[in-house]
């Protein structure tokens, strides 16, 4: 059994305010992700790459199709139809999501944000503190920022914090939505090192990248998208 098997996934948005206008996010998507594998998706903005990731994470409700996922807690489960409670549990313990946009809670320091992610999985506080620090250090977030609120961070700092918060849990499955979008080369390498490290530990990943060159070094399969459909793919 693969970790994730997406069959005929369609997502369209029905806009009531605009006379029921339909916007197609993605259509006819078929993908299979094996355990420990990394799939990369490329394509222009608006091609539907994020739509797939958000359907998996269930920030979007798929319009049709199925996404069978091998969950530790629930066995084989169709994420397209999973209950809200199941999704909350799976998000907390199994699937991480890193986006180019930071959505952290206000008035939580950078360090606490990372600690809280770990504590939510049941990790004791002392251990969480140690791991949070080493993760922040790995991504090169200046130590002077750890005790401050991230809302004033630069784009790259926010992204690094986001990566630290998602990766500290060493999730079973990680969704990466342009995780290197606003990073300099040194930081990109830190991300790549962490991705390779997580991969060695068995984390499966699906990621969207701008930077093809960077991506080719880490992915096992690569797909390209255009107007909501997968138009090409190859195995690295």
């Amino acid at each position: 059994m693969p970790l994730l098997n997406i069959e005929q996934l369609n997502k369209s948005f029905h806009l009531h305010q605009f006379g029921g206008k339909q916007i197609v996010g993605c259509s006819g998507i078929n993908l299979t992700l094996d355990h420990g594998e990394f799939i990369g998706i490329t394509g222009k903005s608006g091609a539907g790459k994020s739509t797939i990731l958000k359907c998996i994470y269930r920030t979007y409700i798929p319009t049709s199709g199925s996404m069978y996922y091998e969950s530790d807690s629930y066995g084989t489960i169709d994420l397209a139809r999973a209950g809200e409670r199941e999704m909350i549990e799976i998000r907390q313990k199994e699937i991480g999501y890193v986006s180019q946009f930071l959505k952290l809670l206000p008035r939580v320091t950078a360090q606490d944000a990372v600690i809280q992610e770990l504590v939510a999985t049941g990790c004791p506080k002392e251990r969480a503190e140690g791991e949070a620090r080493s993760m922040l250090r790995h991504f090169g977030l200046a130590e002077s920022l750890w005790d401050t609120y991230p809302n004033t961070f630069s784009g790259g700092e926010k992204l690094r914090l986001n990566l630290a918060a998602a990766m500290v849990k060493r999730p079973k499955f990680l969704l990466l939505d342009e995780p290197t979008a606003s990073l300099d080369n040194g930081s990109k390498e830190a991300v790549r090192d962490m991705i390779l490290d997580l991969k060695r530990q068995g984390t499966s990943m699906m990621g969207i990248f701008h930077d093809l060159e960077f991506m080719e070094k880490v992915v096992d399969q690569e797909f390209s998208m255009q107007s909501g459909s997968i138009t090409g793919g190859r195995t690295a």
Binding site: H16, T59, E84
Partner: peptide
């Protein structure tokens, strides 16, 4: 409508929820 809070905010289904979000 009911759902995960991020889903309600990013992919609202009902016309009224879409209006609220907009």
């Amino acid at each position: 409508e009911q759902g995960l809070t991020d889903q309600i905010m990013e992919d609202p289904q009902h016309a009224y929820t879409q209006l609220l979000i907009n």
